[in-house]
Nucleic acid binder design. Structure first.
Lengths: 343, 343
DNA sequence: GTGAAAGCGCTAACAA
DNA sequence: TTGTTAGCGCTTTCAC
């Protein structure tokens, strides 16, 4: 069923039918009612390709995710983010164009998406420090919103980020307040901007507390179980082992826990662990993990807000670039076991 | 840069340019060379919307994933699957239309995608027993391939599945060979077809070994850490605790491990655990987990193969429906710690 | 081997 | 308030 067919069926012009269906005000209400009813009855759905071509709007948002070197943030975070964003897209009739690009192919991918007219805007995921994609997208003139930020880039672009510095400072504060002086930081890859900021927050808190930063206690890698396990073992076997671990995600925190067991230590009793994750929901942990846990944000909500910002940018490209810093919804102890011991 | 602009630039008709670029044979090679070169030089990219409208092909594949009630299989599995599929799509010029649908909205979503002409075909994820979507897609006449199968549906449709029955039978065989008689099964939600088949495989192996099935040892739920932890605690506190656990995914297996620690038991020594997962890669575990691990399949490879099957179906809708059963690439002990003890 | 013309299904001036 | 007309950028008969 096409517009034309529907219109002849109704004895109207395609134009009127189009206007009626798209909510233009100049259509008589009686006519609109007839049209809408007929459309419903015949199960009419406008052909999106035609609509896109005629309006010059793709009505699609591009999400490009890196494929091969899987940064830990993509896998668990991405689907929650997308789930939130999709809610908003659906309300506005946008669909999602998902593209996986190998590490080096990302820029080319954005260029193609734009040149083909496949998308009206882009969400930039996983910004690194000095991320070159930001300048590139600005050159292209394609609206975009960054989920996160890029240190070292001094351009006026739209972003939404969580206050990672403060989150990790507060987590460190808590451990310090509990009496810990030797705290290990198991961070993500520090070329990722969020990981970089988290380290800064940690260091700031240590400094405020008058504790010297020990580089040997600060590790950075992809956040796997094995990373947590091996790092914790190595640290625990030092002559001066840490009494607490601040871990940037739940999976490596589980590895730390395993290492403690191996060494006969009790998590939450002999050694404290704070797992400071973006979103723990994918583990759906009920509440017994002997690990201090703290979520920095709801990724789903971030998805919703980024989507809204982007649609705003698309509809009014010359409006100022919104820059949103979310304070972490820091729910320390949300699923806490025994309290960490003072050391 | 549009086709028309490019053609006037070359002093040719749009038709010829189109033919040259799309590899039609009737173009003189010299002409084609000129055209291709000019296109490259001016960075010409055909507008996809126009192409789609003119050809009537969306050049897009639909992936619909359930949003709210997040079955455990979606989150970790999905992005790997998509990564494999995307490789193939890219080779054939298809893009991915990703839609998140709430549990009840799935059918409507498929219908809309089809009516709008937004996709040429669909990959059906996470089939349940008697999945109603299969009959619906067949009615629509939209090409589709199911990743998995649906017990209870007797239609001729294309699918690709792993031999879950045999995988779990073999895992059970191994435990039985090691001397275990009381084996707990921590399965996924059994409305999911794959979970249902896994239970069958487990039961078959027990029966062959002359071991009675104890329903109290067979659990089924979403595969969270907490599920593994609580279930294992409860089972271990019974008067006749199991000596081995067969767990359908790594996350709950980590929970089982934690429960063992709580009870002073050593995983891999006092009690055996086999984690039998579709794909452990998202944990990227190095090899020290004191858990027997077995991967049933490479999800990425499944994505590649499903994509290829679907494209085949799209290009030749009346060809027979391929039905592919992959034998599990069962690498038991791939990352094994100490051997399970005989009990 | 190349081009002219029509059309894919829709929207958007401009008229009426 | 409704209709006419002309595209959006490409493909595809059908002539030449």
């Amino acid at each position: 069923m096409t517009l034309k067919e529907l219109s002849t069926l109704l004895g109207l012009s395609p134009t009127t039918v189009s206007r009626a269906l798209n909510g233009y005000p100049e259509v008589r209400e009686a006519t609109r009612a007839r049209v809408v009813e007929a459309a419903r009855k015949h199960n009419y759905r406008p052909n999106m390709q035609a609509k896109r071509l005629a309006t010059g709007r793709a009505m699609a948002i591009g999400h490009v995710i890196p494929a091969t070197s899987r940064h830990e943030m993509v896998n668990p975070i991405f689907s929650d983010f997308l789930s939130g964003a999709s809610e908003i897209y659906a309300e506005h009739g946008f669909s999602v164009n998902l593209t996986l690009a190998r590490a080096g192919d990302q820029e080319r991918t954005y260029r193609e998406l734009h040149a083909q007219g496949a998308v009206d805007g882009i969400i930039l995921h996983g910004p690194t420090m000095n991320d070159p994609r930001i300048a590139m997208l600005q050159d292209l003139g394609l609206p975009f919103v960054v989920h996160g930020r890029a240190s070292g880039i001094d351009l006026d672009y739209a972003w939404l980020d969580v206050n990672n510095v403060r989150s990790f400072a507060r987590a460190t504060d808590l451990l310090v307040d509990l009496g810990h002086r030797r705290i290990a930081l198991l961070n993500g890859l520090e070329q990722m901007d969020f990981a970089h900021r988290r380290r800064i927050g940690h260091e700031q808190a240590l400094q405020r507390a008058g504790i010297a930063c020990d580089p040997a206690l600060m590790l950075s890698d992809e956040m796997t179980e094995d990373y947590g396990y091996r790092s914790a073992l190595a640290l625990l076997d030092r002559p001066d082992p840490p009494t607490a671990f601040l871990v940037a995600a739940i999976i490596p925190a589980l590895g730390v826990q395993r290492a403690l067991h191996d060494r006969g230590l009790r998590p939450g009793r002999d050694v404290s662990i704070i797992c400071h994750d973006d979103d723990l929901s994918y583990l759906r942990n009920g509440g017994d993990l002997p690990i201090f846990t703290a979520t920095t944000s709801s990724v789903r909500e971030a998805g919703r807000r980024c989507a809204a910002l982007l649609i705003e940018q698309i509809n009014a490209p010359d409006s100022p670039k919104p820059q949103v810093l979310l304070e972490a919804a820091l729910t320390i102890g949300q699923s806490t076991g025994p309290a960490p011991r003072r050391s």
